[in-house]
Design a protein around this nucleic acid. Structure first.
Lengths: 335, 335
DNA sequence: TTGAAAGCGCTAACAG
DNA sequence: CTGTTAGCGCTTTCAA
């Protein structure tokens, strides 16, 4: 029950009747080089165990000028895409003997910069920016400290990036929505596009794919049907409400730009026990297991997180600083 | 493009023609005590800015014997409960000027201990264990280093704990399932209980509530209907498949112990385009926005994360080490 | 086979 | 008002 203080290598050295440097060598495995007797090594290890000794990484890192920390910034945890990014990132970092620090910045540019600064203070060896508002700004900040950055899920001009192939994914998804319509023997018509920020790269690319798929079937995408109302369930619900008030009927096909947008849409659809979107074919650029079960008319694009992280760590492992953008094809589900 | 090295207070001191301690004082705000001239202070700050200086927290922490880091261990990120815990925890920690480090340990006891050890190495000032397999073991480890621990979402015998009131929540949820059955003019019958580990505290408490609610309506809960098949979608799907093979019909009411369990159940239910659970009243101890939309027969218990974290930080702020368990009432939704 | 000593970047006590 | 100095816990020569 005693609130023990932390023990140091010198505590151990005293108990073992030896010196700090010997203890250090034994405890960090350098000791084969220094020909320390196995007996001494064992005694030291045993004492360390008994004291519950843990290395002070702050001190160790300070001395070695190497923290062993890798940082990641994500916007949110609360959807399957970012949560699996965080989860898999941690695992892959640990496999490499690195200590992962992930932090979520709520799509808040100020918080993003603050978090990056904090990571630098804690001496991250490299920093991965996922879905940051302004990754280039963070890259600049980090480069000033000699810290490498990498972008995930959105391309930057100042660091190597791994992203989904948003154009192809959106193209395929839109095409599948049309296919569903055709199978339901509906005449083809311009689809609705809901969610995302008009300015951000991913949304722009997805819109390109969305429009290209319209052109493929010789349909003109409608400008007024593109509702890039940001991320957030409330906003998409309100946007759809407004749309339904000004347009007598909602198109029977819809491209939804994220699960959070889908959440708002479905909530609006089911409000007051109605089913406003009954029969409407939905395609969502993002995946969620429950959303997928919501109706047989829902198609989802699942971004290939394991592959994205594999490629990301290839860049990190080889300490690449070549500025390139690697695009990973997402997976359409089902079919 | 030059990979700048990190600058130190001495780089700044040289450029400003002053000493390291003065720079340090200016940069960390201690400088009003030392009556440093505003002019000097300004010059120093300006130079620091130009160099893109960031404090080396490793060194600072080493010297002050205070890291400013608070750690948290969670099992997963990929459900709304744990992801909002992580998200809100980070925010509340930052509000207190602490640097939050959250890591996910995949319900793997070995990884949990390793992660705790790593956190200690990096000098966390306190550690919150959420849903750990053996929090007491971690508490012991940390106490040996003089680091306070706190348990969240499950009670420990060796640290203050904040948990949901699982008994009351489960009791109310079960009661609501019965109510739904009654409203559908079904005769009451023993409900199915699916998911969770028979050994873990939360599941035990929920079972107690489940059984108590049966007793309230003078129904005997059936032993063979309690399927604590662990966490995991696959397992619950398989379990239900097996159950349906050995029992001719599935009870029309079901207590589902987590969203991941629900996921497996729904997937099994909808497999091959069927609706095996059509009309079955479901109650799930956990909340997910899409799951909630899945059917009108689904009730969810939402654990009160903001309140839990508020109470947790009260304990942390006052550095409590009184071993007590604070129970927070979860919220039944809808109604 | 081992120990002494310097120094990583920073802070705080003390001395001007 | 400011600089010197010691030391946080560790690693790493270098000397023995």
């Amino acid at each position: 029950m005693q609130p023990t203080k932390k023990s140091t290598i010198y505590d151990i050295a005293n108990l073992a009747g030896t010196s700090g440097s010997t203890v250090s060598a034994v405890l960090n495995g350098t000791w084969k080089k220094r020909r320390i007797s196995v007996k001494l090594a064992d005694r030291i290890s045993k004492i360390a165990d008994e004291l519950g000794y843990t290395l002070n990484m702050q001190a160790s890192a300070l001395r070695r000028e190497k923290s062993g920390i890798i940082g990641m910034i994500v916007p949110m945890y609360d959807n399957r895409y970012f949560s699996s990014i965080a989860q898999d990132f941690e695992q892959m970092a640990r496999q490499r003997g690195l200590f992962p620090i992930v932090t979520c910045t709520r799509r808040d540019p100020k918080l993003e910069m603050e978090a990056a600064r904090a990571m630098l203070s804690y001496q991250v060896e490299s920093l991965v920016c996922t879905g940051a508002t302004d990754p280039d700004c963070i890259s600049d900040l980090c480069r000033a400290s000699g810290v490498k950055t990498f972008n995930l899920d959105l391309p930057g001009q100042k660091a190597p990036s791994v992203i989904s192939n948003n154009f192809e994914g959106a193209f395929a998804l839109t095409r599948s929505i049309f296919k569903q319509c055709r199978e339901a023997e509906l005449e083809l018509f311009p689809l609705l596009f809901v969610g995302g920020r008009a300015g951000d790269h991913n949304t722009r690319e997805r819109l390109r794919g969305f429009i290209a798929a319209h052109e493929e079937v010789a349909i003109q995408a409608k400008h007024e049907y593109i509702l890039t109302c940001g991320y957030g369930a409330e906003k998409s619900a309100d946007t759809l409400q407004l749309f339904s008030e000004t347009n007598k009927n909602i198109p029977s096909g819809m491209f939804v730009n994220s699960t959070i947008t889908l959440e708002g849409i479905m909530r609006w659809s089911n409000k007051d026990g109605k089913h406003r979107l009954k029969g409407v074919k939905l395609g969502c650029f993002d995946w969620d297991p429950f959303a997928e079960l919501l109706s047989e008319h829902i198609l989802m694009v699942r971004q290939d997180v394991p592959e994205m992280l594999t490629r990301l760590f290839e860049l990190i492992d080889r300490k690449s600083s070549k500025i390139e953008t690697i695009e990973i094809m997402p997976i359409i589900s089902p079919r």
